[in-house]
Nucleic acid binder design. Sequence first.
DNA 1: CAGTGGTCTAGACCACACC
DNA 2: GTGTGGTCTAGACCACTGT
Lengths: 244, 244
Amino acid sequence: MAHSITLDRGSPVPLYFQVAQHVEQSIEAGALPRGTRLPNEIELAKQLGVSRPTMRKAMEYLVGKGLVVRQRGVGTRVVSPKVRRSLELSSLFDDLDAIGQRPTTRVLSNTIEDASADVAELLGVPKGSPVIAISRLRSALDQPIARLHNYLSASRLSVSTDALETQGLYQLLRRSGVQLHSATQVIGARTATAAEARMLGESKGAALLTMQRTAYDDHGTVVEYGNHIYSALRYSFHMSLLSI
Amino acid sequence: MAHSITLDRGSPVPLYFQVAQHVEQSIEAGALPRGTRLPNEIELAKQLGVSRPTMRKAMEYLVGKGLVVRQRGVGTRVVSPKVRRSLELSSLFDDLDAIGQRPTTRVLSNTIEDASADVAELLGVPKGSPVIAISRLRSALDQPIARLHNYLSASRLSVSTDALETQGLYQLLRRSGVQLHSATQVIGARTATAAEARMLGESKGAALLTMQRTAYDDHGTVVEYGNHIYSALRYSFHMSLLSI
DNA sequence: CAGTGGTCTAGACCACACC
DNA sequence: GTGTGGTCTAGACCACTGT
């Protein structure tokens, strides 16, 4: 346990984070198998040469990551490493990229329109104000996977078709300096119309996953509204949840 | 701002939480409209009569709830109150209950079986060991909504059919002293078979939502595996996400 | 430059679980 | 009891953002 821990107090990375990573690595490496009881935090703080509040912050980070569980009067135990928080929210693009399926995007349209009553309501802008309307076809391994419709308030930024072909919308927004804060989404299902089936390489009546998502920035302003359909044969939503 | 705050230092509820709730209520009540910049935390701590670390912990709680945003060198701003973390993981039962649609459950079967290879793998128990297999039909407003299949390791606990008819499985587990820690789930879609359609009051080929969920306890042991189908006409998954 | 949140320390007391 | 994590304090220094 008490083996060589190297803390760099000159580093810009916080002490508590260095400590947390050290413990995390010990867990991941299997040095602390699941169920192991860690020393109490005062002892740990002494071993690692930090103050107790700093040690606590490190532990709180690990609890938040789901790696350990703490109980007053009992102690700190290591949870199974395979149980991990993940995903929570990521774009389809990121998902596919992560698993090595180089996703491709074809921009079907990228225009500026006057907001209809519906879209204005969803974006929280006046009816008739200019909005960006994007339609994309997402594929992986030359198979179509999803048709993505997005609306963004045009007063906030512009998105080039080229950029959309090479990266995900959220990636692009972040790089444009938009601070994403939160999102709400609804996942449902329905059957494909003939046109949708043709576009996604399915047959009419095939099951589709649907997702509507509204994303907000730090101010609580709507950044983006998306209305998407996915081939259920080729895609599903994976998520992990903590603190049930 | 500095109006009557009543902190009860004798209360078992922590100071930082009392402070957080006070600020939260001010935000909810509209006294601090969206975008409002809060005083800096030292000033706030002085106003409320607590130390700075306690004030910080209160603010961290509000950040975690998505109510405020903090930026070093800038300050703390109030986010739109309508943007809220919610749901994340809740059972269908809880969802329906919350919106006033008194859900009902009919237990189709509740047996103890020898684990098949598949189920044993999913639950992390030896093949052939006893497992609880539950099948339920969930309805709301006299309309069937979902068919729920669950497996639990029988060595851990027992669930009565009566209890299952009156409360959600997760509720029941919690009340049995099981500490739920995390879960992973996969949401997909497919079309209904004739039997499924009959059961859910749909027609053959209708779109269904599917969900598989594995829930873990504090030790990282599998508590429950569920395989569910939902009428897509009458149900969808709602979730909010923070820190995109 | 001044003002903000982020980090870190040293110490104290308390509530809870287990023996 | 004894040991654990949970709370709280008073103060210090630092990193970043804006002027």
